[in-house]
Design a protein around this nucleic acid. Structure first.
Length: 215
DNA sequence: ACCCAGGGTCATA
DNA sequence: TATGACCATGGG
């Protein structure tokens, strides 16, 4: 089958196995952005604790985080790990977010310009930028993460060291340009990566066996 | 005790 | 361009 059909088939199989995911788990656009930074190489359960601390302190907004003392933010986000570097990343991001007028203004920017500026913010790399673009700004950008690489490497679809944007553009070229589709697809990939396609794979419980090139 | 988690930056070659 | 060190908590 064509690569386009293959990518779409994987989506259908994952949706059948795991069901609708309704991502990103957050109560606001800004909470999505904070979560995207705090979850870098970190378990989501730890991020939830950090976000809860920010909410309890009444600090889950860009102004509060940007002008707070470094020590204050670091204490609150400690459970999410790397708290010193992540404090700097969060504050740099919030400074940029405030200067640009917040979501109210940024929502009118082109996806291209928004992505370029996000990537210039300290601590925001490709995946974090794309999480924000897709789940906070609803832009049709396909997120590539470690789970995506692991799952599609094991299926025999991609090699290990292909650059981020090469993989992203490949997926985008083989699906309709649809933010809702990308959002659901990435959520399904994470769900599958967490519970089935783990470092030690659980291939008996994998619905993708029928299309795996190594079977 | 060890491995892993919804990455990114920086120095080095 | 491409490696490697570094960042740090918490669950299994």
């Amino acid at each position: 089958m064509s690569e386009s059909r293959f990518i779409k088939k994987v989506y259908q199989l994952l949706l059948t196995q795991h069901g609708h995911q309704s991502w990103w788990p957050a109560n606001s656009k800004f909470e999505v952005m904070v979560g995207a930074i705090l979850t870098q190489n970190t378990a989501w359960t730890n991020v939830e604790k950090a976000i809860h601390n920010l909410i309890s302190a009444g600090m889950l907004d860009a102004h509060s985080i940007a002008k707070a003392k470094q020590e204050k933010v670091a204490t609150l986000i400690k459970p999410s790990g790397y708290f010193n570097v992540k404090t700097k990343r969060l504050q740099k991001f919030c400074e940029w977010f405030v200067i640009r007028g917040g979501h109210k203004r940024l929502r009118y920017w082109s996806t291209k310009k928004l992505r370029e500026e996000l990537l210039e913010v300290y601590g925001v790399g490709y995946e974090t930028a794309d999480d924000i673009l897709l789940y906070a700004f609803l832009r049709p950008i396909f997120v590539i993460d470690a789970y995506t690489r692991r799952i599609f490497s094991r299926l025999g679809y991609i090699e290990g060291n292909v650059p981020y944007d090469v993989v992203r553009l490949d997926f985008e070229s083989k699906l309709s340009t649809n933010a809702k589709l990308y959002a659901e697809y990435h959520a399904l990939i994470v769900q599958h990566g967490k519970h089935v396609c783990k470092p030690k794979p659980n291939c008996d419980a994998c619905s993708l066996n029928s299309i795996c090139k190594f079977n």
